[in-house]
Protein backbone atom coordinates (compact mmCIF):
# COMPACT_ATOMS: atom_id res chain seq x y z
CA UNK A 1 0.00 0.00 0.00
CA UNK A 2 2.82 2.36 0.97
CA UNK A 3 4.57 1.49 -2.26
CA UNK A 4 1.44 2.29 -4.25
CA UNK A 5 1.05 5.70 -2.63
CA UNK A 6 4.64 6.57 -3.42
CA UNK A 7 4.45 5.27 -6.96
CA UNK A 8 1.22 7.18 -7.54
CA UNK A 9 2.84 10.39 -6.32
CA UNK A 10 5.92 9.86 -8.49
CA UNK A 11 3.98 9.10 -11.67
CA UNK A 12 1.70 12.05 -10.96
CA UNK A 13 4.69 14.39 -10.71
CA UNK A 14 6.05 13.19 -14.04
CA UNK A 15 2.62 13.35 -15.65
CA UNK A 16 2.09 16.89 -14.42
CA UNK A 17 5.45 17.97 -15.85
CA UNK A 18 4.41 16.69 -19.27
CA UNK A 19 0.89 18.07 -19.04
CA UNK A 20 1.81 21.59 -17.96
CA UNK A 21 4.77 21.94 -20.32
CA UNK A 22 2.71 20.45 -23.15
CA UNK A 23 0.00 23.02 -22.50
CA UNK A 24 2.52 25.86 -22.33
CA UNK A 25 4.16 24.88 -25.60
CA UNK A 26 0.74 24.51 -27.26
CA UNK A 27 0.18 28.23 -26.65
CA UNK A 28 2.58 28.77 -29.56
CA UNK A 29 0.17 27.15 -32.02
CA UNK A 30 -0.39 29.72 -34.76
CA UNK A 31 2.17 32.12 -33.23
CA UNK A 32 5.49 30.45 -34.11
CA UNK A 33 8.20 32.77 -35.46
CA UNK A 34 8.32 30.80 -38.73
CA UNK A 35 6.03 28.10 -40.10
CA UNK A 36 8.51 25.26 -39.51
CA UNK A 37 8.89 26.25 -35.87
CA UNK A 38 5.17 26.57 -35.41
CA UNK A 39 4.87 22.98 -36.63
CA UNK A 40 7.83 21.82 -34.54
CA UNK A 41 6.42 23.37 -31.36
CA UNK A 42 2.97 21.90 -31.85
CA UNK A 43 4.50 18.47 -32.53
CA UNK A 44 6.57 18.68 -29.36
CA UNK A 45 3.50 19.78 -27.46
CA UNK A 46 1.54 16.83 -28.85
CA UNK A 47 4.25 14.38 -27.77
CA UNK A 48 4.23 15.87 -24.27
CA UNK A 49 0.46 15.71 -23.96
CA UNK A 50 0.57 12.12 -25.22
CA UNK A 51 3.14 11.29 -22.56
CA UNK A 52 0.96 13.06 -19.98
CA UNK A 53 -1.99 10.90 -21.03
CA UNK A 54 0.03 7.70 -20.60
CA UNK A 55 1.40 8.80 -17.24
CA UNK A 56 -1.80 10.18 -15.75
CA UNK A 57 -3.85 7.18 -16.92
CA UNK A 58 -1.29 5.00 -15.18
CA UNK A 59 -1.41 7.17 -12.05
CA UNK A 60 -5.19 6.66 -11.98
CA UNK A 61 -4.72 2.90 -12.23
CA UNK A 62 -2.21 2.84 -9.38
CA UNK A 63 -4.46 4.96 -7.23
CA UNK A 64 -7.37 2.58 -7.82
CA UNK A 65 -10.12 5.04 -6.96
CA UNK A 66 -11.70 5.07 -10.38
CA UNK A 67 -10.13 8.30 -11.61
CA UNK A 68 -8.94 8.21 -15.22
CA UNK A 69 -6.30 10.43 -16.82
CA UNK A 70 -8.84 13.11 -17.73
CA UNK A 71 -10.23 13.33 -14.20
CA UNK A 72 -6.71 13.78 -12.87
CA UNK A 73 -5.76 16.34 -15.50
CA UNK A 74 -8.89 18.46 -15.36
CA UNK A 75 -10.38 18.17 -11.91
CA UNK A 76 -7.70 19.05 -9.38
CA UNK A 77 -6.88 22.34 -7.69
CA UNK A 78 -3.56 24.13 -8.06
CA UNK A 79 -2.00 22.79 -4.85
CA UNK A 80 -2.64 19.24 -6.06
CA UNK A 81 -0.47 19.73 -9.14
CA UNK A 82 3.07 18.47 -8.60
CA UNK A 83 4.87 19.76 -11.69
CA UNK A 84 8.22 21.53 -11.60
CA UNK A 85 8.17 25.32 -11.34
CA UNK A 86 10.29 25.41 -14.51
CA UNK A 87 7.57 24.03 -16.77
CA UNK A 88 4.88 26.48 -15.68
CA UNK A 89 7.00 29.56 -16.42
CA UNK A 90 5.58 31.79 -19.15
CA UNK A 91 6.68 31.32 -22.75
CA UNK A 92 8.25 34.77 -23.00
CA UNK A 93 9.97 35.14 -26.36
CA UNK A 94 10.89 32.17 -28.54
CA UNK A 95 14.34 32.01 -26.92
CA UNK A 96 12.91 31.70 -23.42
CA UNK A 97 10.60 28.91 -24.56
CA UNK A 98 13.58 27.09 -26.07
CA UNK A 99 15.74 27.60 -22.98
CA UNK A 100 13.02 26.10 -20.76
CA UNK A 101 12.63 23.23 -23.22
CA UNK A 102 16.39 22.65 -23.39
CA UNK A 103 16.74 22.31 -19.60
CA UNK A 104 13.76 19.98 -19.49
CA UNK A 105 14.67 17.81 -22.52
CA UNK A 106 18.23 17.30 -21.27
CA UNK A 107 16.82 16.14 -17.94
CA UNK A 108 14.11 13.94 -19.39
CA UNK A 109 16.48 12.12 -21.73
CA UNK A 110 18.71 11.07 -18.83
CA UNK A 111 15.73 10.13 -16.69
CA UNK A 112 14.01 8.03 -19.38
CA UNK A 113 17.25 6.25 -20.23
CA UNK A 114 17.48 5.07 -16.65
CA UNK A 115 13.78 4.31 -16.27
CA UNK A 116 14.12 1.71 -19.06
CA UNK A 117 15.60 -0.49 -16.35
CA UNK A 118 12.80 0.18 -13.85
CA UNK A 119 11.42 -2.87 -12.09
CA UNK A 120 7.98 -1.38 -12.79
CA UNK A 121 7.08 -2.69 -16.24
CA UNK A 122 4.57 -0.01 -17.18
CA UNK A 123 6.87 2.82 -16.13
CA UNK A 124 9.66 1.25 -18.21
CA UNK A 125 7.29 0.96 -21.18
CA UNK A 126 6.29 4.62 -20.95
CA UNK A 127 9.96 5.60 -20.69
CA UNK A 128 10.85 3.52 -23.74
CA UNK A 129 8.13 5.20 -25.79
CA UNK A 130 8.90 8.70 -24.54
CA UNK A 131 12.68 8.46 -24.84
CA UNK A 132 12.53 8.14 -28.61
CA UNK A 133 10.48 11.32 -28.83
CA UNK A 134 12.58 13.19 -26.28
CA UNK A 135 15.76 12.63 -28.28
CA UNK A 136 14.24 14.55 -31.18
CA UNK A 137 13.12 17.32 -28.84
CA UNK A 138 16.56 17.63 -27.26
CA UNK A 139 18.35 17.84 -30.58
CA UNK A 140 15.97 20.59 -31.64
CA UNK A 141 16.27 22.65 -28.44
CA UNK A 142 20.07 22.19 -28.30
CA UNK A 143 20.47 23.49 -31.85
CA UNK A 144 18.45 26.56 -31.00
CA UNK A 145 20.66 27.29 -27.97
CA UNK A 146 23.68 27.50 -30.26
CA UNK A 147 21.87 29.34 -33.03
CA UNK A 148 20.51 32.01 -30.71
CA UNK A 149 23.46 32.23 -28.32
CA UNK A 150 26.08 32.36 -31.05
CA UNK A 151 23.83 34.39 -33.37
CA UNK A 152 23.41 38.16 -33.46
CA UNK A 153 24.05 40.56 -30.57
CA UNK A 154 20.31 40.87 -30.15
CA UNK A 155 19.64 37.10 -30.03
CA UNK A 156 22.64 36.56 -27.76
CA UNK A 157 21.60 39.13 -25.19
CA UNK A 158 17.99 37.97 -25.17
CA UNK A 159 18.80 34.25 -24.76
CA UNK A 160 21.33 35.14 -22.05
CA UNK A 161 18.52 36.97 -20.21
CA UNK A 162 16.37 33.84 -20.46
CA UNK A 163 19.20 31.72 -19.10
CA UNK A 164 19.64 34.15 -16.20
CA UNK A 165 15.94 34.16 -15.36
CA UNK A 166 15.32 30.39 -15.67
CA UNK A 167 18.50 29.03 -14.09
CA UNK A 168 17.10 29.28 -10.57
CA UNK A 169 14.41 26.73 -11.43
CA UNK A 170 16.78 24.02 -12.66
CA UNK A 171 17.80 22.62 -9.29
CA UNK A 172 14.26 21.39 -8.76
CA UNK A 173 14.67 18.98 -11.69
CA UNK A 174 16.68 16.83 -9.28
CA UNK A 175 14.32 17.15 -6.33
CA UNK A 176 14.10 14.08 -4.10
CA UNK A 177 12.05 13.39 -0.98
CA UNK A 178 10.82 10.28 0.85
CA UNK A 179 8.67 9.34 -2.16
CA UNK A 180 11.80 9.08 -4.30
CA UNK A 181 13.98 7.49 -1.65
CA UNK A 182 11.61 4.59 -1.11
CA UNK A 183 11.16 3.98 -4.85
CA UNK A 184 14.93 4.17 -5.42
CA UNK A 185 15.39 1.50 -2.75
CA UNK A 186 12.95 -0.77 -4.57
CA UNK A 187 14.69 -0.33 -7.92
CA UNK A 188 11.68 1.42 -9.45
CA UNK A 189 13.37 4.75 -10.14
CA UNK A 190 17.00 5.87 -10.44
CA UNK A 191 18.73 8.17 -7.99
CA UNK A 192 18.99 11.77 -9.13
CA UNK A 193 22.62 12.14 -8.10
CA UNK A 194 24.17 10.69 -11.25
CA UNK A 195 21.56 12.38 -13.40
CA UNK A 196 22.33 15.84 -12.03
CA UNK A 197 26.05 15.48 -12.78
CA UNK A 198 25.48 14.24 -16.30
CA UNK A 199 22.88 16.92 -16.94
CA UNK A 200 25.27 19.64 -15.88
CA UNK A 201 28.03 18.31 -18.14
CA UNK A 202 25.72 18.20 -21.16
CA UNK A 203 24.06 21.56 -20.51
CA UNK A 204 27.40 23.26 -19.89
CA UNK A 205 28.90 21.90 -23.10
CA UNK A 206 26.02 23.19 -25.23
CA UNK A 207 25.84 26.57 -23.48
CA UNK A 208 29.58 27.03 -23.89
CA UNK A 209 29.30 26.31 -27.57
CA UNK A 210 26.46 28.84 -27.62
CA UNK A 211 28.86 31.40 -26.02
CA UNK A 212 26.47 31.79 -23.07
CA UNK A 213 27.43 32.06 -19.40
CA UNK A 214 25.78 30.12 -16.62
CA UNK A 215 24.84 32.50 -13.78
CA UNK A 216 27.16 32.40 -10.78
CA UNK A 217 24.33 33.37 -8.45
CA UNK A 218 23.24 30.06 -7.00
CA UNK A 219 19.88 31.10 -5.57
CA UNK A 220 17.47 28.24 -6.23
CA UNK A 221 13.70 28.27 -6.24
CA UNK A 222 11.65 25.14 -5.67
CA UNK A 223 8.19 24.14 -4.47
CA UNK A 224 6.28 22.61 -7.38
CA UNK A 225 6.96 19.04 -6.32
CA UNK A 226 5.10 19.66 -3.06
CA UNK A 227 2.34 21.70 -4.67
CA UNK A 228 3.66 25.21 -3.99
CA UNK A 229 3.59 27.02 -7.30
CA UNK A 230 4.42 30.35 -8.86
CA UNK A 231 1.52 32.62 -9.77
CA UNK A 232 1.59 31.35 -13.35
CA UNK A 233 0.04 27.93 -12.70
CA UNK A 234 -3.36 29.34 -11.76
CA UNK A 235 -3.68 31.07 -15.12
CA UNK A 236 -2.78 27.87 -16.96
CA UNK A 237 -5.36 25.88 -15.02
CA UNK A 238 -8.04 28.50 -15.62
CA UNK A 239 -7.65 27.91 -19.34
CA UNK A 240 -6.90 24.19 -19.20
CA UNK A 241 -9.88 23.37 -17.00
CA UNK A 242 -12.39 25.89 -18.32
CA UNK A 243 -14.60 23.44 -20.21
CA UNK A 244 -14.75 20.79 -17.48
CA UNK A 245 -15.43 23.38 -14.80
CA UNK A 246 -18.11 25.22 -16.78
CA UNK A 247 -19.76 22.07 -18.16
CA UNK A 248 -18.90 19.20 -15.80
CA UNK A 249 -18.46 15.81 -17.52
CA UNK A 250 -18.97 17.24 -20.98
CA UNK A 251 -17.64 15.07 -23.81
CA UNK A 252 -17.24 15.61 -27.52
Amino acid sequence: MEKNTNLFEYVLRMGDDSLILGHRVSEWCGHGPILEEDIALTNISLDLIGQATNLLEYAGEIEGKGRDGDAIAFLRCDREYKNLLLVEQTNGDFGKTMMRQFFFDAFRRLLFERLLKSSDIQLAAIADKSLKETKYHLKHSSEWMIRLGDGTDESHSRIQDSLDSLWKYTNELFFMDEVDFSLIKEGIIPSMDGIQEEWLVYVTSILEEATLSIPTNNWKQEGGRIGKHTEHLGFILAELQYMQRAYPNMKW
Binding site: E36, A40, N43, I44, L46, Y136
Partner: peptide, 8 residues
Protein backbone atom coordinates in the same frame (compact mmCIF):
# COMPACT_ATOMS: atom_id res chain seq x y z
CA UNK B 1 13.93 21.65 -43.72
CA UNK B 2 12.68 20.66 -40.29
CA UNK B 3 12.93 17.67 -37.99
CA UNK B 4 9.18 18.06 -37.43
CA UNK B 5 6.54 17.75 -40.13
CA UNK B 6 2.83 17.60 -40.82
CA UNK B 7 2.29 14.74 -38.34
CA UNK B 8 4.29 13.46 -35.37
Amino acid sequence: ISQFGSTA
